[in-house]
Amino acid sequence: MTLVVGDEELLADRAVAAVVAAVREADSGAEVHDLAGGKVELGELTQLASPSLFEDRSVVVIRSAQDLSKDVIAEIVKYAAHPADDMFLVLAHPGGVKGKALVDGVKKAGASVVTVTRLTKPGERLDFIKAEVRAAGRTITQGAAQALLDAVGSDLRELAAACGQLAFDTADKSIDEAAVARYHRGRAEVTGFMIADLAVEGRLAESLEQLRWSLATGGPPVLIVSALAGGLRSLAKLSGAPRNLRGAQLAGQLGMPPWKVDRVRRQLNGWGPIGLSAAIQAVADADEQVKGGGTDPAYALERTIQVIVASRTGR
């Protein structure tokens, strides 16, 4: 009996498939029942677990186990205490509070637990790419992995598919940046904050490029405007902060984390009150434009970024 807990779909699917494959290997005639949590009826499991006439092994997979009804959960937990020899039960649960009784009950009964948590850090995703390529019998350079991550985005399923495709398409043992660049280009995910940081640092070309990527991949203009406003607001706040404050005290006063204070201080280079005023006015205009006051949000955003960069005159 196996319990797969976690919200990373691809990894959960793989863990389930691994169990099924292991059973199949032991007994090629094993029957597989793939059930969706919300549709399992009371008594169905007991029926499946009852000994079959031909003594075949079977695997019962229950996906989205959080949707199981209370009664079925009770049935499964009861079954888990006395499992049948020839049936393997695999439960996939995304974690969280819903259907927690099942997780606790089955764990207590001694099921083997596989945890698949969502990858949140870019480093973890890079490791995933490398492992994926290694599994295909190849290696990938750090730069190439980063380029692939930038271009494909953070969805593991898409990353896995891209890795598989790359391993299939390239001939060399090691996959390098040139190979990635041949098939993948651009950026899948640009946040408003990246655009805003570039804009307030006066890097016009890069900022506009990122803006284009973001809009092309469906980034909502409203969020970009609010990131721009947030960036300028931080600058204005820091510029008006009392001179004698330092470190944590200053961070507390401004309501920002200390690392952000340091970055904003660097960004404040080249900004003066007149420029800041003009930039903030431009952002207010942009917000009005993207909310229906203008016809083209993309134009409004581009113009705003140009005004912001042009306002960075030191005055």
């Binding site: 903030i280 006015q281 917000d287």
Partner: peptide, 21 residues
């Protein structure tokens, strides 16, 4: 006007206070 047009209140008010300076 901006508030009525659903502009983010903080952004609209900031633009205003800056014009009042």
């Amino acid at each position: 006007e901006r508030l009525a047009a659903n502009v983010n209140p903080q952004i609209a008010i900031e633009a205003m206070t800056i014009s009042l300076r």
